[in-house]
Amino acid sequence: MSNRKRVFLSYCHADIEVALDIERRLRDDSIEVLSSFDLDPGSNIQTNLKYFVESSDIVLLLLSKDYFNSVYSGKELYEFLNESNKRKVSVIPVAIERCNIPWQLKNLNTINLYNNIDSGIESLKRQINVLTHVSFDNFSAENFEEFTYLLLKEYGFKNIRREFHSSDYGIDFVAEAFTKNPFGFTQKETWIVEVKFYRNERFSINTIKQLFEYKRSVLPHDSKMLLITNSILTSVAEEYLSDLQKHENTQIEVIDGIKLKKLIAKRKKLINEFLPS
């Protein structure tokens, strides 16, 4: 069984020379690269694009001023983001020059190639490797909880302490985060963290319901809640969470398996837990 990662590289025609160079640098025994260059000019381009996105592990968006000035590339960008949200395909923005990154991509980890392309390509390969190889298949619930503790620590949470489960509710960690308000003053936030590990079953909306009930019944109104799971949030669960937060004026941050892999890819210590050097 092949372990090659299938990567689709999207770019505008003005950047074709840079794109082909990146494609050459990426392609090896472990990475298969498809690009806009592989599209059949005699076929329906949108249909082909959809197929390439759906059949790829990762989509790379080659960002440049020309890319954002291209009407075609702009439509392509929204198509990729929509498909990635629906099908949980990972998208990695790759900047080949300084340009304004649109808000839709702000929460993604953009790889910078314009300062040093060699180190940038290495970072890109590492992120591709993480996003396609990181797996929680061999984890137990206890392993996943221990990993969550390391994740919280790596992302700056302080005074992380484990909590005991009651018969009605289960909260795994309480942690503190220190942020600055618009005036530059540091303020402390208390986060309640629930860890949910699934072996085979998919994410359940009941988990969100239980967290909300716990917050409404036990916690102060302004407390922050974080749910971390190895499973994937379905579109139904995402819609339910969005409606809940709007109508109940509450915030429950959810990091599912897809977001978790992206967070791992940003921290070497976390990467080494899965891909030791």
Rank of each mutant, 00 (worst) to 15 (best):
K268H: 08
Y51Q: 14
D66G: 03
L113G: 06
V254H: 07
Q127I: 12
N107F: 13
V71K: 13
D137Q: 13
T110M: 10
K266S: 08
I271E: 09
I208E: 01
S55Q: 14
D168M: 08
A177C: 02
A19F: 01
A177N: 05
P41G: 10
Y67W: 12
F157M: 09
K88R: 12
W103A: 13
Q245Y: 02
N3M: 13
I232Q: 08
E145K: 14
D256G: 11
D40G: 07
R4Y: 08
H221G: 02
I111H: 05
A141E: 15
K180R: 15
R87M: 09
R126E: 15
I31E: 02
S10F: 05
E54A: 02
I228Q: 08
R4A: 09
N109D: 14
K188W: 11
L49V: 07
I121Y: 02
R25L: 13
K259M: 06
I160G: 01
R126D: 10
Y78G: 07
S2W: 06
M1W: 06
T148V: 13
A14W: 09
G120N: 09
V53Q: 06
L105Y: 10
K262M: 13
N44T: 06
L77P: 03
L20V: 12
Y78I: 13
T148S: 08
N82W: 00
N69E: 10
Y11A: 02
P41L: 07
T234F: 03
R6C: 12
L152A: 08
F164A: 14
S43G: 13
E23V: 08
I101D: 03
E238F: 03
S55E: 15
V236K: 00
T190G: 08
L62K: 03
L244G: 00
L260M: 10
K268M: 14
H221Y: 14
S56C: 14
Q104F: 01
E154D: 15
L151D: 08
P220K: 04
F37T: 13
V89Y: 00
D172I: 05
I271P: 04
E239I: 00
W103F: 15
S84Q: 01
D137K: 09
K224A: 05
Y169C: 09
L81Y: 00
C99E: 03
V195Q: 05
L39P: 01
K269H: 06
K188F: 11
Y72G: 11
N85Q: 11
A175K: 05
R4T: 10
G184F: 07
I228T: 07
S73P: 04
L62E: 04
K86R: 11
I208W: 00
R267L: 07
I101T: 03
R161M: 11
K106H: 14
E238K: 02
V59W: 00
A265H: 02
K65R: 14
K125N: 09
A237G: 03
E239K: 02
G120D: 08
N200A: 03
I192E: 02
G42R: 07
S223N: 09
D243E: 08
E248S: 05
V59S: 11
I101P: 12
V94G: 13
L61H: 06
V174W: 00
F80Q: 07
H221E: 15
T207M: 03
L226T: 06
